[in-house]
């Protein structure tokens, strides 16, 4: 199978703290892979390693057959990995379309072309009517959507979504899930960190479970939810035993 992203034995240490240890898994082209795990499991660190925010202490990250381990964040973006942040990093003094425009300019020199692409992305993300609103005036769900739009404007082959659903209501979550599916339908592979198990299970083809910086399990949503180790990690070992 054709792998868009291969993570091989990646370890990240911050001094004495091991945030990620010996992590290996792969994302197949066109797939949606969910990353789950309790708080502090090292999910966001893993994203930062893939997107070039930090360099791993050990291991390699291979994207589309190229080793991107030591590359800087902006180069990795130019190569086709877009990302969003857990805490939205919107450009509050700029309008929504300008936020998306800076993404669109990543692979376009011509302003007219870039602006046309902005319109397409805004339509895809359902933000057309917010085009000329300043990003600082948006609410949290809208900011999260804007993050996705900005990342999508860079024409990614792989999109890293960091807790896009956190803090959203059920209706907003539904909209976000349909947006993720729409994006995936355009041929973009997705790696998504998610806390909400319902969402992960409904949207992902496969799920990676991280616990204390290590991969506990990689499998289909059904395999993951029925695995005793996952239940133990989420509900505590005691709960697992009591349940049995």
């Amino acid at each position: 199978m054709d792998h868009i992203l291969v993570i091989e034995q990646v370890t990240k240490r911050f001094g004495g703290l091991v945030a990620n240890e010996d992590i290996s898994f792969a994302v197949t082209t066109g797939e949606i892979v969910g990353v789950v795990g309790p708080n502090g499991a090292g999910k966001t660190t893993l994203f930062n390693l893939i997107s070039g925010e930090f360099a791993p202490t050990q291991g390699t990250v291979v994207f589309c057959g190229t080793d991107i381990t030591a590359m800087k964040a902006h180069v990795i973006c130019q190569r086709g990995i877009g990302r969003t942040f857990q805490i939205p990093q919107s450009l509050d003094d700029m309008m929504v379309y300008e936020n998306v425009l800076v993404g669109a300019l990543c692979k376009r020199k011509n302003m007219e072309e870039a602006l046309a692409h902005v319109d397409e992305v805004l339509a895809l993300c359902g933000m057309t009517e917010l085009k000329t609103v300043y990003a600082g005036k948006l609410n949290v769900p809208q900011k999260k959507r804007l993050e996705i739009a900005r990342a999508m404007a860079t024409d990614p082959k792989l999109l890293l979504l960091d807790e896009t659903m956190a803090g959203l209501t059920a209706t907003e979550r539904k909209d976000a899930v349909s947006l993720i599916r729409k994006i995936n339908a355009t041929g973009v592979s997705i790696l998504t960190i998610e806390h909400n198990m319902d969402v992960v299970m409904s949207v992902s083809n496969r799920v990676v479970v991280l616990v204390s910086g290590r991969v506990l399990l990689v499998g289909t949503p059904e395999e993951v939810t029925s695995h005793p180790d996952v239940i133990a990690a989420y509900l505590g070992g005691g709960a697992n035993q009591d349940g049995q």
Partner: peptide, 23 residues
């Protein structure tokens, strides 16, 4: 221009700037 839009992005948020491919 692209140049000044990039400068505004850097001013607004450097992390965001790098995440959209700005050196």
């Amino acid at each position: 221009s692209k140049f000044f839009y990039y400068l505004r992005t850097i001013k607004g948020n450097e992390t965001a700037a790098e995440s959209v491919g700005i050196d």
